[in-house]
């Protein structure tokens, strides 16, 4: 049985404590990506949210026209920007490697772009562990792209753990979409 704490009878709160919450803008690293994203709201996954505060660029759409093979939109939607992982695994599947080979080829052809590889986990895990697991997944993609010839200087990795699911139900059909590493194309160098 679960009971709520009894509410205080009254709340005569004297505001002695008023933290400032104004902060400098975050996400500098994504600012270029946001500009690109603005052109196209299409997403690889229906029902996906917008590019949310705190990052997770893999959720939104990428810029340019899908019909232009040199556009980030083509990369995202025609090639495919993400690979999926089995439960608690960070090893690339055969399909994942095939996709990443195509991603690497696109990156080699379109040398003006850099990429941030986001690693994600499903909600079935504790927060810190999932951050570590997401780091493993993004690194697996990072290493594979480098092995295919992409310069490490053009790639960064980030983990979001279980903080940015793409599918929000609590069953395997959603979890399998959330266990992912997404290659998010950004203009210019990442440094």
């Amino acid at each position: 049985m679960t009971d709520a704490f009894p509410k205080p009878a009254r709340n005569v709160t004297v505001p002695e404590f008023e933290p400032k919450t104004t902060m400098e803008k975050p996400m500098k690293i994504y600012s270029k990506a946001i500009i690109l994203v603005a052109a196209l709201a299409l997403s690889a996954c229906s029902g996906a949210g917008r590019f949310g505060p705190g990052g997770a660029g893999g959720i939104g759409g990428a810029g340019g026209s899908v019909s232009d093979p040199a556009s980030p939109a083509y990369f995202q939607q025609t090639i495919g920007d993400r690979v999926l992982f089995p439960v608690d695994q960070a090893t690339l599947t055969a399909e994942g490697r095939d996709l990443l080979t195509l991603q690497a080829r696109w990156l080699m052809t379109n040398g003006d772009y850099s990429a941030i590889i986001e690693g994600h986990a499903d909600e079935q895990g504790t927060r810190a562990y999932n951050l570590a697991l997401g780091a493993r997944r993004s690194n697996a993609v990072h290493e594979y792209l480098i092995s295919q010839g992409v310069s490490p200087a053009r790639l960064k990795t980030v983990t979001f753990g279980k903080e940015r699911p793409i599918a929000i139900c609590s069953v395997e059909s959603c979890y399998s979409q959330n266990r992912r590493a997404v290659t998010v194309i950004a203009a210019g160098g990442t440094s």
Binding site: F5, P8, N11, P19, T22, P53, G54, E163
Partner: peptide, 16 residues
């Protein structure tokens, strides 16, 4: 006990 909630940051970034 849940009384006197005050915010320490805004919501512009994920915090954990």
């Amino acid at each position: 006990d849940g009384a006197n909630v005050q915010f320490l940051t805004d919501s512009s970034s994920i915090v954990l």
